[in-house]
């Protein structure tokens, strides 16, 4: 049994509505329904889902930028229940989707790189300089970049600076939130391959969030599929899209444009996400699902084991 890098228990987030000076806020949108899972050390867990499925809310809770409504997070055996980003920062880091806007336009790269070293690890000036040189060497960036400002870099370079900043905190886990979706295909692979190498070099665990199924499949050990704030399927990367159990996973796999496959709309035009302010009873996917029955519309299907390492939340799974 390998060590667990991340253990999440019943994590959920409900955003409140209202809450002015005099009115009391009331619970509103359930962005993430209770989620539990474990990630062993050294694994890459892919997280896929469409816009509005709660991917980003989920990621922000894991790094302490957002306080969860319920649940516990345990990183490398340490419980982190308070939303203190600095405590989280040493264990888990976040790499942002937009490489340029995650860098303060009025700071040099050196100032950006020094912050985590000084504040999280209390390094003095010579130590910091040495460490930055080390990190920059491993992400293939030249040290002369250190005195430049963020707008002088291309997307691919800025994303590598983002990786360098995350590495500077020397975390156990890095959450990669759509790390390559802002990049061109020819550059995308450069960044992905670099991240794969760094993972080995620094013994990291990744949570790879993306809407690009093919990219997720190429880099992940296991994949978790989110729909409407809940996990609908989780399993080994090679199985999830090849032999999906949940009808939604199958819909996703069928929708991805693939060279050599004829163009067909996999579902009717009326299909839309349910209203998050007024969620339906039972399975959230039931309104779009060809296999839905009355049972699906009445009860929430629990995540159950199907096959040796695949779990799906469905009453009528695909075989």
């Amino acid at each position: 049994m390998t060590k667990l890098a991340l253990k999440v228990d019943n994590l959920s987030k409900t955003f409140t509505i209202g809450g002015g000076l005099l009115s009391k806020s009331r619970p509103g949108v359930r962005a993430v329904r209770p989620v539990s899972f474990e990630v062993p050390e050294g694994e890459t867990l892919g997280v896929v889902g469409e816009s509005g499925c709660g991917k980003s809310t989920f990621a922000r809770m894991l790094v302490g930028l957002l306080e969860p409504t319920t649940g516990h997070i345990e990183i490398a055996g340490k419980a982190l229940d308070n939303a203190d980003p600095a405590a989280f920062g040493r264990l888990i880091q976040y790499m942002f989707q937009d490489p340029i806007s995650s860098l303060n336009p009025r700071k040099t790269i050196r100032q950006i790189m020094e912050a985590p070293l000084r504040l999280l690890h209390g390094m003095d000036k010579p130590q910091r300089t040495a460490r930055i040189a080390e990190i920059f060497a491993s992400v293939n960036l030249r040290e002369e970049f250190l005195d430049r400002y963020p707008h002088e870099f291309s997307g691919g370079q800025a994303q590598r600076i983002g990786i360098a900043r995350a590495l500077a905190a020397a975390p156990e886990i890095i959450i990669l939130d759509e790390p390559v979706s802002a990049l061109d295909v020819s550059v995308q692979a450069q960044v992905l391959n670099l991240m794969a190498r760094l993972k080995k070099e620094f013994n990291l665990t990744y949570l790879f969030i993306s809407h690009d199924l093919a990219v997720v499949e190429a880099v992940s050990d296991r994949i978790m599929v989110l729909y409407f704030g809940a996990v609908v399927e989780i399993g080994r990367a090679e199985d999830v899209f090849r032999a999906p159990k949940h009808p939604y996973t199958k819909l996703l796999a069928d929708s991805a444009p693939v060279v050599g496959r004829a163009l067909t709309a996999p579902e009717s035009a009326a299909a839309e996400l349910p209203d998050p302010l007024n969620p339906p009873r039972g399975c959230a996917f039931a309104t779009r699902c060809p296999r839905a029955t009355d049972e699906c519309r009445a009860n929430d299907p629990p995540l159950t084991q199907m096959g040796d390492s695949q779990f799906a939340a469905c009453f009528h799974p695909l075989s």
């Binding site: 922000r60 790094v63 302490g64 930028l65 980003p85 600095a86 989280f88 920062g89 040493r90 880091q93 976040y94 942002f96 989707q97 937009d98 806007s101 995650s102 860098l103 303060n104 336009p105 912050a115 985590p116 504040l119 999280l120 900043r165 500077a168 905190a169």
Partner: peptide, 10 residues
């Protein structure tokens, strides 16, 4: 995002 990043940098 850079404000979030600063928070994570401690």
């Amino acid at each position: 995002e850079f404000v979030d990043a600063a928070r994570l940098a401690g």
